[in-house]
């Protein structure tokens, strides 16, 4: 559970960390969208250069960023392999049964792979440089004009983020306790295995409800009454720096789209 690196906040004080989360969210959406339209190496090079610049500015250690890729390594190699082996083309370099390796295939596999790496690294930078609270604040602010219950969604995300480590710990504890009573989760038919999970699921649900109830009481005791009239410790502030960052992203997107026509 703790090994998953995607979505883990990397605390640091950098220009990227300090940006308004709304700007960062929109920038990632824009980045991902234009990346889909990139088909050649010029575009990829521009995107890679841009990303490298952002990583450098963010002061997140490169090793940490790359470690996030480990999780998708399988998907990445699978997608590249499919493209490599199954792309139809003129220039056949090697063929065996239905497999044909073509120059087009190599080209496509490389573009595909590079694009995926850029995509994942770019979006994980968002969560690496934005604390969960800022992220939910940003989402709340962006959802508000859409007439969605923005505050409720935000508080749900906040509580979920807060409770995930606690519940993961609890799950581990319950599993151990039932193992100590002879429960076995590793052997047996699939149906039996599902049934074996009852001794875990029932206590986990019971305790989650109890926690939810206590948390609700504690929140009420601290005057929580929904989003109305609420203020923020750190209100979102759109500054000159944010405007500058937005401008840079727009220029980058335009350049990236233009590379299609080279």
């Amino acid at each position: 559970m703790t090994r998953i690196i995607i979505g883990q906040y990397y605390p640091a004080d950098s220009p990227i960390h300090r940006l308004d989360p709304r700007v960062k969210l929109l920038a990632v959406i824009a980045y991902v969208t234009v990346l889909i339209f990139v088909t050649n190496f010029y575009g990829l090079a521009v995107a890679a250069l841009f990303l490298a610049g952002v990583i450098w500015l963010s002061r997140v250690s490169v090793r940490f960023v790359l470690r996030g890729l480990r999780v998708i390594l399988f998907i990445l190699s699978f997608a590249a392999l499919i493209n490599l082996l199954l792309t139809p083309g003129e220039n056949v370099l090697f063929s065996f049964a239905f497999i044909r390796v073509t120059t087009e295939g190599i080209h496509r596999a490389a573009v595909m792979g590079a694009r995926l790496v850029l995509l994942i690294t770019g979006s994980s930078l968002l969560t690496l440089t934005t604390s969960p609270i800022q992220l939910t604040d940003g989402i709340e602010a962006l959802l508000k004009p859409l007439r969605l219950p923005a505050h409720d969604i935000a508080i749900m995300m906040t509580i979920a983020l807060r409770m995930i480590p606690t519940l993961a710990e609890e799950l581990g504890k319950i599993m151990k306790a039932q193992k100590a009573r002879g429960a076995d989760f590793e052997t047996g038919s699939p149906l039996k295995r599902i049934r074996n999970f009852l001794p875990i699921l029932v206590p986990l649900f019971v305790s989650s409800f109890k926690r939810a109830d206590e948390l609700a009481t504690a929140m009420e005791a601290r005057c929580y009454r929904g989003g109305e009239g609420r203020t923020k410790l750190k209100p979102l502030g759109f500054t000159g720096r944010d405007a500058l960052a937005g401008g840079v992203v727009v220029i980058f997107c335009v350049v990236l789209v233009l590379t299609r026509f080279i």
Binding site: L215, M219, T231, K232, L233
Partner: peptide, 19 residues
């Protein structure tokens, strides 16, 4: 564990006054 709402100490301390 069942009365801390936010995921950092300062944000949690701010929860009451924010409300």
């Amino acid at each position: 564990d069942n009365q801390i709402v936010a995921s950092t100490v300062e944000e949690d301390t701010a929860f009451g006054p924010e409300n």
